[in-house]
Design a binder for these strands. Structure first.
Lengths: 230, 230
DNA sequence: CCAAAAGTGTTATGCTTACACCCATGC
DNA sequence: GCATGGGTGTAAGCATAACACTTTTGG
């Protein structure tokens, strides 16, 4: 075993996804105030403290830099190329985070997060460091994962109109999906519960029933070895 | 951004898988010579040097500790709980590595790797640190991944009898698979090329044709968006 | 009553699964 | 010639994919 590693630093970064029917899928970026890459956009993140877990570090950095609280966090990949930061060797453990729709919309509206800003995931600005690669990895991950794990619900509110779920899938997958087949599959699995609430109609159109993700039921199916796939 | 991280060290660890028809799926472990966990078995690995890539570090450590050269390497997960090492904070970036069958069998035979040893993946000894968790992650990963990515071939030789491939799947998945359906699917995709060689019969039974993985064809299918699934 | 969005069933097709007998070799 | 492992096809069932009209609301 070779003993070394002393002047290598460890950081965490988080790709935060938000969603609303109007804005689509968005990603939270911050604008750098100092060189290198001064004024460029970057993924929020920072150095790991000596006694905190990786996840705690991510949550802390997000709080400090953007004021956000996420409700889903998943480790993505660790980026460690020797020259990814021009100043010194930094290993970055990247996480993917998801924010509930209502919170995302509040944040969109507020100006609290001084230099943080949401960008549609298809119209991203140039990014600092190797953050483009990190982001691509995250987008790839969420796209793949939404097809066989119920992470989409983490981007929606507790109760949501069915059409919002469908639009989320369309936005992420970048292609149309058949509404009938989609609802058939979702409802057949029993992981969606109908509520007796209705969405307030916005402008025109028939108001939709509100649905709710049934996590218990999902975990039950998971234990039985039943997987869904869209 | 919080500046810190100075006395956190970075290590890489590798879960090395080997396979032979006789031995089944095996994992390479080393026996620790010094405390903590003196004499306990552990996953090979060590500290990252200031200027090497993560993959280079893994390959170097494997060479140093076990004399092995792997032909497939994939980042698995990063383990960083504050107390995973009793001495100090160590972040470990774990990799999964695969070794070709013939090389695995050479290594089994040789005593070069003084304190390194292969263990069947179902009969593992108690492990040092959090290495059990790392190993479980790796086993889970290879099991899932072999079903939709052609990583099984990385454990076999360039040319192999079809039955070996089948046995590898049976060993990894831990259940029988239907020989006819399995070969139908594999051959239908065209990712396996028949050679005109035959395996030397060992003892009894009809000798089997040797097959070869057609990587180009697989990459072609991948580009066309066609996925296989066992 | 018109425009917009929600809600809902049926059929065809392809894929997956289940299943059993013959073949080539060594001893 | 027998024991061992290799090689092969077909039919049923199931899941997926394709497809369009009716309902409810606001204006």
């Amino acid at each position: 075993m070779t003993r070394s590693g002393s002047d290598i630093k460890v950081a965490v970064d988080a790709i935060v996804f938000g969603y609303s029917k109007q804005e689509g899928v968005s990603i939270l970026l911050i604008q750098r105030k100092y060189p290198p890459f001064k004024n460029a956009w970057a993924i929020p993140g920072g150095f790991l403290l000596p006694d905190e877990t990786l996840e705690d570090a991510v949550r802390r950095e997000l709080r400090e830099e953007t004021g956000i609280e996420v409700n889903y966090l998943e480790q993505l990949y660790t980026f460690g190329a020797p020259n990814r930061d021009p100043r010194q060797r930094i290993i970055s453990i990247a996480y993917m985070a998801l924010v509930k729709s209502s919170l995302f919309q509040q944040l969109k509206a507020s100006t609290d997060a001084e230099n943080a800003q949401w960008f549609n995931f298809r119209e991203l600005p140039p990014l600092a460091f190797d953050h483009k690669a990190i982001l691509d990895t995250a987008i790839e991950r969420i796209r793949t994962k939404i097809r066989y794990q119920p992470i989409g619900f983490e981007l929606l509110d507790k109760k949501f109109p069915f059409a919002d779920l469908e639009k989320l899938y369309i936005a992420l997958l970048g292609r149309d999906i058949d509404r009938r087949n989609f609802s058939k599959k979702m409802l057949a699995l029993g992981i969606l519960d109908e509520t007796n609430e209705y969405a307030k109609p916005e402008g025109k159109g028939r108001p939709s029933k509100m649905y709710q993700f049934n996590k218990k039921r999902y975990q039950q199916l998971e234990r039985e070895g039943i997987h869904f796939e869209i």
